[in-house]
Computed example of a mutant assay.
Amino acid sequence: MKVGIIGASGYTGAELIRGLSLYQEVEINQIVSRNFAGKKLKDVFPHLSDSRYQDLTFEEEADLDSSDFYFLALPHQPSVELVKLLHEKGKKVVDLSAAYRIKNPSAYPNYYGFEHKYLELLSESVYGLPEIFREEIGKASIVANPGCYPTATLLALFPAVKEGIIQSDSITVNALSGISGAGRGLKQHFHYPEAYGNAYPYNPIKHRHIPEMEDVINGISDKKLLIRFTPHIIPVSRGMISTVVFKTDMKKEQLEELYRLEYRYEPFIRILNNPPAIKDVVGSNYCDIYVDYDERTGDAVVISAIDNLGKGASLQALQNFNIMTGMLEDKYIKDISRVSILFP
């Protein structure tokens, strides 16, 4: 199977190449980046200089015919158009942007600044969170890979939402992310002198991942739930923790049993006896979850940890790729953490 990666010179592109280098059934036959066109992979990403693709050259333009399967690691608006073109050619796509994640088209002008023109494709696309939408992903030709904050948060919420145990109408989420979540572009507040020893919240009222998360949980819940979401940047390269708080009358033992039962067959979910740590998931596709109950306030406290570039982006994209192509879901992915990693 020939695979193309469009937008291959960002952090998510590098992680896709790192993972796909293990796939014996796959050949990456094109990597596309206008910024690095003409350069070899090993010169742009020295940590991949041992990869079998080390001499592959970045192309300036994508060939939409030469690959069987495409990963898009592009900004949102270009992805809207490119997904449509690839779909018309009968290609399967995993899109890592937000272009096809949210079913409600009114969210796009409000949160992303553009009108979504392809409502039929938007309806046809499948949200790529396998723990919730595995069956739909297996039949899909367009999979919208989730954002990193939504992945960590939705996996912390799903069992509770599915079983209807949340008593309030709103859920509080505080999330911490490594700097790589902002991408590889140059921005002053992510420069080393600005970020080192620093931590801060951003977009605390209208973060663009809010409609994505509410879209999913309100498709599962029998009542309308709102998410009070505050993201924070912390001075680490990669990794993410999401702390989710909601009212319930379930005690700790009941909550733990619920989560263990719901996720008992999931290859990449680990239910822990202690709060999770970023270092334990970096470079992997795992989501570590800890469940507790505050007797004093009547709140469930669910804490999840993922690698924002792994389960929060590229390795989850490979999980979706495996499902879409009929491979074993965890094939190769559990071995990826042993392959050279960018800034561990």
Rank of each mutant, 00 (worst) to 15 (best):
N203A: 12
E214G: 15
F246C: 04
I234V: 15
H207L: 06
P235A: 00
P231F: 00
E194T: 00
T243N: 10
Y202P: 09
S237W: 04
K251P: 05
E194I: 01
E214F: 15
M213L: 08
A199M: 13
K252E: 09
K224F: 12
L226H: 11
N203V: 04
P201S: 13
A199H: 14
Y192D: 02
L226T: 11
P231T: 05
D215P: 14
V244K: 01
E212D: 04
H191E: 08
N203E: 08
K251G: 13
G197D: 02
L226S: 14
S242T: 07
I217L: 12
Y200W: 15
M250R: 04
Y202H: 13
I233R: 12
D215C: 08
E214R: 15
P211V: 02
S221Q: 07
Y202M: 03
I205C: 03
N203D: 10
L225V: 00
F229R: 01
G197I: 01
K224N: 14
P193H: 01
E194N: 09
I227V: 15
K251W: 06
N218R: 10
D215M: 05
G239V: 07
K252R: 09
I217K: 10
L225G: 03
P201H: 15
I241N: 07
M240S: 15
V236S: 06
K252D: 02
Y192V: 02
K224I: 10
K223V: 09
L226G: 08
I217F: 12
M213K: 06
P193S: 09
V216I: 13
N218G: 14
Y202F: 11
P211W: 02
H191K: 03
H209E: 08
I217H: 11
K206C: 04
L226D: 09
T230Q: 11
I210D: 05
F246L: 02
E212V: 01
K251Y: 06
K252I: 02
Y202W: 15
I220G: 00
R228M: 04
I205W: 01
T248Q: 09
K223W: 09
S221I: 02
D249I: 00
I210C: 11
T248L: 08
E214C: 13
P231V: 01
K224H: 10
I241P: 02
H232P: 06
K252T: 03
H191G: 05
D215H: 12
T243Q: 14
H191C: 01
T248C: 11
G239C: 11
E194L: 04
G219A: 13
L226Q: 13
V245L: 05
S242W: 13
A199V: 12
V236T: 14
M213W: 10
M250P: 00
S221M: 09
H207R: 02
I220E: 00
P235T: 07
F246M: 02
H232S: 14
A195V: 09
R208T: 07
E212L: 00
H207M: 05
I220W: 05
N198T: 11
K247A: 04
Y202G: 00
D222H: 07
Y202D: 04
P193F: 03
K247N: 05
P211Q: 02
N218D: 12
N218E: 13
N218L: 11
I241V: 10
Y200G: 13
A195H: 01
F246T: 03
I233L: 15
M240F: 13
F229E: 00
A199E: 14
H209R: 09
I227K: 05
E194H: 07
Y192T: 01
P204F: 01
I227D: 03
P204H: 08
A195G: 12
G219I: 03
R238T: 14
N218F: 12
